[in-house]
Amino acid sequence: MAEKNKLIIENAIKLFSTNSISSTSIQDIATESGISKGAFYLHFKSKDALVVAIIDYYSDLITSCIQKSDYDDLAPRKQYNQKLTDLFEFIIQHKDFILVQMKDPSIPLTDEMKSSLKRVTYKMTQFHQTYLTEMYGHQIKPFLWDLTLIIDGLFHSYTKFLIHAPVVEIRILVPYILERVDSIVEGLKPDDALLKEEQIAAALSDFFEVDDSISVSATLHEIRNVIRDSEKKDELFISIDMLEEESQKTQPRLPIIQGMLLNLRNEPGIQKLIQRLVTHYQLNDSLFND
């Protein structure tokens, strides 16, 4: 991102958090940024376009936070603990962004703003669901949506509290939250699931706009963790490495992707994950169903 765009975004957030979006004019933002009102329009065509850019800017920062590879050598629970800690610290550090949402909760949203917010929500949901599955195993699948909303609710509630009253250390708070989730998981019974996959599938598009690159990345991450204890893991990890490399390309080579998925298909516990990628890349289903 251009430095001038970043400067305008950060100054706008500061003004929005103090005065609200509706009460802040483009002239206010331009003055705070040390540019003319005309120069503002060289960077953003409108205030709405600026708000979309702000959402995307913070979405990218949050994505970098939850996808960082610094903790890849740790067990899933420790990874999750560290990333939640980093996420809390990041949000508190950038609390003006949250204050804007608190100050203007009912601001009219354009379709582009809604789309950007849906992408943020999707990324966070994938983040929680990936680690919940890794921590507690596939036996929690019937409760995955319930647990996702519970931990997301805890995270957001404590975030709002800490912004105004930072009386608890984050390094103590995160293990506390995970221990509460442990207690919930321990008490679950097979018939306890409130939100079932088939019930919410039709409504997902109302909450999420799927970022395909994140979907593929999260799926491959999930596969890697399922096969971590396999005797053939070194061989299988090579296939996953190649899949990750192809998924980052503008035009992934489908024959390479198909070949690598065929290398993985007989490994126990990942058939549904493989099928997710087969569907995503529109590969020949019959090759994976014999």
Rank of each mutant, 00 (worst) to 15 (best):
M1G: 14
K6W: 07
A12C: 01
A12S: 08
I13G: 02
F16G: 00
T18C: 12
T24S: 13
Q27Y: 15
Q27H: 14
S33N: 07
G34Q: 05
I35D: 01
A39D: 11
S46E: 08
S46H: 05
K47R: 14
K47C: 03
K47H: 04
L50Y: 09
S59L: 13
D60A: 11
D60H: 07
D60Y: 06
I62F: 02
I66W: 03
Y71V: 05
D72R: 08
A75S: 15
K78N: 11
K78A: 14
Q82M: 15
K83L: 14
K83T: 03
L84P: 00
T85E: 05
T85M: 03
I91D: 09
I92W: 00
I92H: 01
I98H: 09
I98S: 13
Q101C: 12
D104L: 00
S106V: 15
I107N: 13
I107S: 12
P108T: 06
E112P: 02
S116T: 00
L117R: 08
R119H: 05
R119F: 03
T121G: 08
T121D: 07
Y122N: 05
K123M: 10
K123L: 08
F127T: 00
M135D: 09
G137Y: 07
H138F: 15
D146Q: 02
T148F: 00
I150R: 11
F161P: 00
H164T: 05
V168Q: 00
E169M: 03
I172H: 15
V174G: 01
Y176S: 14
I177S: 00
I177L: 02
L178I: 15
E179W: 04
D182C: 04
S183Q: 14
K189Y: 10
D192E: 03
K196A: 10
Q199G: 13
L204F: 04
S205P: 01
S205G: 04
F207T: 09
F208A: 01
E209M: 09
D211T: 11
S213K: 15
E222P: 11
E222G: 08
N225V: 04
R228F: 07
R228T: 08
E231I: 12
D234G: 02
I238S: 11
L243K: 04
E246S: 05
K249L: 05
T250R: 08
T250Y: 09
R253Q: 09
R253Y: 10
I256F: 12
Q258I: 10
G259D: 09
G259W: 05
L261I: 08
L261W: 02
L262Y: 06
R265S: 12
N266D: 13
P268N: 06
P268D: 06
Q271S: 14
K272S: 12
I274N: 04
L277A: 01
L277W: 04
V278C: 06
T279G: 06
L283K: 03
L283I: 02
D285S: 12
L287W: 10
D290N: 13
